[in-house]
């Protein structure tokens, strides 16, 4: 092997042929309202934690649905479970439980 001073870049695109959406499926089973999200971002717009951190629930639930699980757990742990996101969701998603369920499946997955 030769070191040329650079490596072959890894792709950062979402590869739905390779990614598994199993974890999202688990969340959908335990919290069916998760399925009704339309990605409007109301939750993120009102998020108390999101004002001071990079926490973005809209994006986290989307990435889980696409099987992109790398950073979700670390991000979701910033949530303070205040419940404001539940109040604003136009589709009645139980966002608070979605966060807890996402954390649960991710912890089990990482173990």
């Amino acid at each position: 092997m030769t070191d040329f001073g650079y490596t072959i870049n890894k792709s950062h695109r979402i590869d739905l042929d390779a990614n598994s959406t199993l974890l999202a499926e688990k969340v959908r089973l335990s919290e069916p309202s998760f399925k009704a999200c339309i990605g409007c971002g109301s939750c993120t717009g009102t998020c108390t934690a999101g004002r001071f951190t990079q926490l973005n629930l809209r994006k986290m639930q989307l990435l889980l649905s696409r099987g992109e699980t790398a950073y979700i757990k670390k991000e979701l742990e910033k949530c303070m479970l205040c419940g404001k996101c539940m109040l604003v969701c136009p589709r009645g998603v139980n966002t608070r439980n979605v966060i807890l369920e996402m954390l649960r499946v991710l912890s089990n997955h990482n173990d």
């Binding site: 950062h12 979402i14 590869d15 042929d17 990605g39 809209r58 989307l62 696409r66 992109e68």
Partner: peptide, 12 residues
């Protein structure tokens, strides 16, 4: 592009 995720996406 998955414009909500802000990433290119491919599937077969």
């Amino acid at each position: 592009e998955d414009t909500l995720a802000g990433k290119p996406l491919k599937m077969t």
